[in-house]
């Protein structure tokens, strides 16, 4: 594991009226790791994701990605810089075909907007990814016709189109069957072995313990613990937060 941080969040704070969703949250995602962000429901994990990716504006705190401080996180700029994400509920473009879903995600300079929607290179790259994710037979089908698990896979494949450095996965295995969970786990491992860094929000603790290192635990919007999976699992504060013991 490389110790250099690819993503750093310092003092992130977000309030919704009187509710403090995230408070003074500081952590980093080392390059080349599969870092987990876990915590009980309502602990602020998805809010942190939204703050990191510019879907929400933080009330306080800073984000740095690839050594550069991001002054005003914006999804478009961050995507182009190599940081991308999936959503808790699989979000795809239901009226587009699977190939079109993937091609939308290719970074396009303005001068190419009048060019053919799917160029030869775009198509071959899309088919490559669909092949990897076992969806190639459905390449020309409407994405809306996929099962939920397939939509999750498609969403995952989509965010890889622009060859990002860091992928934020928001509950990648939520609502999918065990076969699909195994498939997603394998895919994450393979991509990580190729050098892709992940930050994963996940409730499946068995998967987290197998897959992720380090693990960051949030509770009530603040960082409760951070460390190796075994250490976190035995941390009394974590047990207390999860079990209320």
């Amino acid at each position: 594991m490389s110790s250099a941080a690819l993503l750093t969040a310092e003092g992130l704070t977000k309030r919704f009226g009187g509710v403090v969703a995230v408070e003074d949250c500081t952590f980093s995602v080392p390059t080349g790791t599969i870092t987990a962000l876990v915590g009980p429901n309502g602990s602020g994990k998805t809010t942190v994701f939204n703050l990191l990716t510019g879907y929400l504006r933080a009330d306080a705190g800073t984000v740095a990605f690839a050594g550069r401080r991001i002054r005003r996180p914006d999804p478009i700029r961050l995507y182009r810089a190599g940081l991308t994400r999936t959503f808790q509920q699989a979000r795809i473009f239901p009226d587009l075909t699977l190939v079109e879903n993937l091609v939308v995600a290719i970074q396009q300079p303005w001068r190419t907007i009048v060019c053919r929607a799917i160029g030869r290179d775009d198509r071959s790259r899309a088919f490559e990814l669909l092949e990897e994710f076992g969806l190639v037979q459905l390449a020309e089908a409407r994405a809306g016709s996929l099962s939920y698990g397939q939509k999750k896979l498609l969403e995952f494949a989509t965010v890889l189109m622009a060859e990002p450095q860091l992928v934020l996965l928001d509950e990648p295995t939520a609502g999918v069957n065990p076969v699909m969970v195994a498939a997603i786990e394998t895919r994450i491992r393979e991509l990580n072995a190729r050098g892709l860094t992940f930050l994963v929000v996940e409730h499946n603790m068995n998967l987290v313990m197998r897959l992720c290192d380090p693990v960051i635990v949030l509770d009530h919007g603040t960082k409760l613990a951070e460390g190796r999976p075994a250490d976190v699992r035995n941390d009394a504060r974590v047990l207390d937060a999860y079990l209320g013991a």
Binding site: T53, Y55, P75, I76, Y79, R80, T84, R85, F87, R91, I92, F93, P94, D95, L96, E100, V103, V104, A105, Q107, Q108, T112, I113, V114, C115, R116, A117, I118, T158, V159, M161, A162
Partner: peptide, 23 residues
């Protein structure tokens, strides 16, 4: 049939998602 069209249809289906994909 252009990339602009693909961008527009992406926006129609899910604008937030499209933003997150650099559109």
């Amino acid at each position: 049939r252009s990339k602009l069209g693909l961008m527009l249809l992406g926006i129609r289906d899910d604008e937030e998602k499209a933003r997150g994909l650099g559109v």
